[in-house]
Amino acid sequence: MVEEEERLAEEEEKQYEKRTVQDLTELKMRVNAPIELVRKVVKLAGFTNSMGRPRPIKLLLCLDDADIIKWYAGVGRRLLDCFCCCRNFKMVKTVVSYHLRFSCFLTLAEKHECTKRQAISYYTKDLKVANDDGVTEVHFPTEREIKMMGDKNLFDPKPVDGTLTMILVRLAVDDSSYPCLAHFCAKMDTVLYRIRLLQNRLNVDPLNEKKWVLGLSAIHESLNKKCLPLCSMHASDLLLGNITLQDIDCTQFVDVE
């Protein structure tokens, strides 16, 4: 028994030496993702319960089905992009593929008052949803796509902070007289959205280490409940995380009672 343990330890040490030499040869900097902090922020943001199991986020029930899925997809893709260079990237993929995906299913099931099984059957495991033209789209990374993701080089990803703490609520206002506030977009066919910051409803305090993750920022309180007109493309991009509020002209918010 002791000899077997020594043999396994020796093999593991050799594998570590081999990986280290390979990383140095390829001039790669390899780090480990702070997986415990990732799990903590996922829990604080409401994706999981105290037992670490997926749960619905009831604050999203007011959104359209497509917007709910896009919001989850934006968070998931940013997490994958942010930690794609890490040695333990597989653990991050599990958080996205399991915790976020099934939290999305539970949220959709809660909205339509059905079971999780019925939601999975309707949207499929790939979370397919029809757009305004009736065309089926897939926004959330599929299980196969996540599984096939490999290690990538370090780059400058968009931060996941804002995506975790903000949702866009579509207003039932039939007024398209406002131009899209995305930079360099002059489209007049817009929809009004209201920014809602989740930290006000989730007992999250970015200034309190016990109620948030140290070093992880949040959107400023002054933007809560602000209204902005966006065209369909930029509204989708903002939900999916392709753009941030830095790409929006925040000086032109609309006053809506």
Score class of each variant (00 low, 15 high):
residue 87 R to Q: 08
residue 254 V to L: 05
residue 133 D to K: 15
residue 139 H to L: 10
residue 5 E to L: 15
residue 47 F to R: 07
residue 149 M to I: 04
residue 84 C to V: 15
residue 155 F to S: 14
residue 63 L to F: 09
residue 83 F to P: 01
residue 205 D to A: 03
residue 195 I to F: 10
residue 62 C to W: 01
residue 182 A to R: 11
residue 141 P to G: 08
residue 14 K to M: 11
residue 168 L to H: 01
residue 133 D to M: 13
residue 6 E to H: 07
residue 91 M to Y: 11
residue 51 M to T: 13
residue 73 A to K: 07
residue 27 L to R: 14
residue 24 L to V: 13
residue 169 V to D: 05
residue 72 Y to N: 08
residue 77 R to E: 10
residue 51 M to Y: 14
residue 249 D to W: 08
residue 13 E to D: 09
residue 131 N to P: 06
residue 42 V to R: 02
residue 123 Y to L: 02
residue 12 E to L: 11
residue 110 E to R: 11
residue 8 L to G: 03
residue 62 C to G: 12
residue 88 N to L: 01
residue 205 D to W: 01
residue 39 R to M: 09
residue 122 Y to T: 09
residue 114 C to L: 05
residue 170 R to H: 11
residue 78 R to V: 08
residue 252 Q to P: 03
residue 205 D to Q: 05
residue 221 E to F: 07
residue 199 Q to F: 15
residue 234 H to P: 06
residue 49 N to M: 01
residue 232 S to T: 12
residue 161 D to K: 04
residue 10 E to K: 13
residue 35 I to W: 00
residue 165 T to G: 10
residue 236 S to E: 15
residue 41 V to E: 02
residue 32 N to D: 14
residue 220 H to K: 14
residue 257 E to L: 13
residue 115 T to E: 06
residue 156 D to I: 14
residue 75 V to K: 00
residue 162 G to P: 09
residue 18 K to R: 13
residue 45 A to L: 04
residue 10 E to S: 12
residue 241 G to M: 04
